[in-house]
Design a protein around this nucleic acid. Sequence first.
DNA 1: GTAGTATTGTCAGTGACTGACGATAAGCGT
DNA 2: ACGCTTATCGTCAGTCACTGACAATACTAC
Lengths: 203, 203
Amino acid sequence: MPRNREEVRRRLMEAALELYQERGYEQTTAAEIAQKAGVTERTFFRHFPDKREMFFHGETALGEMLTAAVRNAPRELGPWETLFKAFRSAEKLFIENRHVSEPGRRIVAASPALQERQAAKVNSLTEALAAELRERGVAARRASLIAKIGMAVLAHAVASWLDGGSQELDDHLVQAFEDVSDLSAFNVTRFAETAEPQLRTDS
Amino acid sequence: MPRNREEVRRRLMEAALELYQERGYEQTTAAEIAQKAGVTERTFFRHFPDKREMFFHGETALGEMLTAAVRNAPRELGPWETLFKAFRSAEKLFIENRHVSEPGRRIVAASPALQERQAAKVNSLTEALAAELRERGVAARRASLIAKIGMAVLAHAVASWLDGGSQELDDHLVQAFEDVSDLSAFNVTRFAETAEPQLRTDS
DNA sequence: GTAGTATTGTCAGTGACTGACGATAAGCGT
DNA sequence: ACGCTTATCGTCAGTCACTGACAATACTAC
């Protein structure tokens, strides 16, 4: 039983990934993972706050990277441009972690508990980005909305990239941001007026 | 010990809400809720699949309402207009449930476990909306992106409405959709080119 | 009132997670 | 090589969410 923290942690993650791929996440107990890694169940929970958290460690680095990118973006950029630039600057991180997130995606997709945790992680990252935008002087409400939309766009681009074939992540990102721009062809106010003719007398 | 299903369910929810507001969600056990409602812990879990699920029953009706609204929207409407119309048509449901979602919001905000469940619920509703858009002939990828952005906008509008003071939900919704339209002033392609001047020789 | 069905109670058990405390390995000075 | 300190680990006991199996009980129709 080694006492090197990182070593034990690494072995726990390896053991967990193997067992998850064999029997699936729900069919694997923390005790089994610990045993395969050569430690006790108690030790497992000293390294990870809970069973789900093992999956979301690359995302910690991603969050720090994105918030830093927003913080360090040129002052003159608006919030939307800032997010676009920040997302693009993180492309390398996604590519480097693809060999982890690719198989992890299947496991997460098969487990409601993991999906919940992932959704929560996305939310907290969204709020972190909104906070950074606020630091840059964006009004609170606007910062929150733009962060939400931005993360939705990012999540969509990454998902398309992981699912899809040969296209680059950056292409998916640019495409998704362009799709958002296309949404503006829709004039809300005019639509709102014409959509409920029963409330108007003229035409 | 009554054997009327709805009656027992109602008493369980009442007991739960009271205890949650007293001691908080994590400090309340399922056994305590059941006891306060006059039944056994086992019965609690026959009425609710798990402890978190109690909170998200109004959202079931909301999901059905929204998906139906999308399904029944005029054929000629584009996906974005369809969502806008669908969201507006659900305003009454939100207003009717405000007395429930308003205090429930504080409890959820104080509990990571409940936040995770809520985020997952939002995700599944998002996918349901994307599926409805696909049924209307929208390309799969585009449907997914628009549903995500739409739900982000809706969530933002509802949150602003619950937080904020006197403004109507509909005003928040219209405002949020307009904010999205304003995002289009940003030309992605041109920005992408000019943003990395070190790669270009001219200017 | 009786038979049938739906709902509940009881019991035993699993698995995630935690606190407390003793044991042990690793690093360090001598 | 020897103790000393500290971080890490093992062991144990316990809580709580959740489940399966089966018996007990209330409701419902006849």
